[in-house]
Nucleic acid binder design. Sequence first.
DNA 1: ATTCACGTATTTGCCACACCCTTCG
DNA 2: GCCGAAGGGTGTGGCAAATACGTGA
Length: 365
Amino acid sequence: MASETEGGKGGYWGLAPRRCDSCKGSPALLFCRADAAYLCGTCDARVHRANKLASRHERVWMCEVCEQAPASVTCKADAAALCVSCDADIHSANPLACRHERVPVVPFLEPAASALKSAAAAAGGGGFLFKGADDCDEEENEPEAASWLLPDPVPPNPNLKGGTMEAPELKAADYFFSDVDPYLDLDYASSMDARFHQTDSVVPVQAKAVGGPPPPALLALDGDDFTRSKPSYSSYTAHSVSHSGGTVSSSEVGVVPDGSCGGGGGVGAMADVTNPYGGAGRAGNPAAQMDREARVMRYREKRKNRRFEKTIRYASRKAYAETRPRIKGRFAKRTEIETEVDRMYSSAAAAAFMVDGVYGVVPSF
DNA sequence: ATTCACGTATTTGCCACACCCTTCG
DNA sequence: GCCGAAGGGTGTGGCAAATACGTGA
C-alpha cells in the first residue's frame, strides 16, 4: 500500500532523505559517530564488519522525521527517534507535545539489520523505540510489531532501486502510517480532540480497571484498524468503546475521504486517501507538506492520548443513566408514579443511599 | 475437502433525559 | 465585552437482536 513516498522520490515530508556517504545511492539508515558518516544498511554491514575495531563503532539511527540528522533523543510518546532540531520543533509545538518524555538515544554496535532485530526482540522489555507509544511496557506481538513499525530489516539494495516492492526510501515513519493513515481522518480526529480538550477538564476521567494491556493490534493502529476483519478482544468490546465518547469508536474515526485531497471524491478521492503520502499532487507542494506535517502531529497527539478503557466524560450522566428506569435494557420513560416517588424520596432516599456509600454524590459541572 | 448445523462469542442499536454548549438578545 | 435565557445536541448503561466465529458431524 505505502510503497511510494512523497511524490515517489522525496523523504517523509517531502525532503529527500540523506544519502549514504559510502555508496551515495541508498538513503542513510544510521550515523556512525566514530566515522562521522551516514551509512545505509548495506554499507554499514560492510564497513563495520571489516575488522574488530570498526565493529565497536557506536551508531545511532537517523532521525525518523527529517531523515537528515542522527537521532539524539527518543520520544516515548511518539515512539520515534528524533534529531535535536526535530525534537525541538515537534516538542515545542504545543503544551502536550512538550510534555512528551524523551530519553537520549542509545547507540548500538551491531550491524543495522541485527540491531533492528534486537530492537524488535527487546520491544517486549523496554525497547520502546520500535513500539507504539502506549504499549511500551506491555508485551508485543513481535512479528506484527516488526511488520508495521520496523524499517525494512533488509538493507536497501541500490541495485534494485526502483524495481522492487520495497522502495529504498521506505523507512520507519512510512511504516508508522502505512496502515493507519488511509483510514484515519486526521482532521476529524483533531476536531474531536479539540472538543474533548474543551471538556476533558470538565469531568475527571473515570477509568474502569481492565483485565490487561490492550491488544497489540489495537495499540499498533491507534484502535482504528478497521481494515481487519472483526477483531475480537473481549475486554475492549464495542460497549467499552462505542458507549464511550471519550474513546475511539467507529463513528469517531470515519473512513472519510479527505476533502482536501484532489480528485473530488469517488474513486479518485479514495485513491488519494489510500495513498498516505498524498500522491503526486502533493509532491513538492510546501503547503501540502505542512498540512501533512500538521496532520501527522495531530495524529501523534491523538495516539498519545488515546484510551482503550472506557472513559466516562460526564459522571453525572453516568449516575443518571444507572438510576434511570429500564425496560429490557432500554431507557424507559418515568411514569408519573415514579416521578412522584422520586420526588417523595429524592431527599431522604438519596441521603440514605449516600450514607450507604453505594451511590456517590453526583458531581455537577 | 466441502457443506451444514449448532453453539458460543462479539457487535450493534435502541431507549429517555439531564446536562453541556452554542446562539441570540 | 459581559450576562442570562433558550434551544439543540450529546452522553450515558443494560438488554436483545444481529452478526461473526468455531467446532463437529
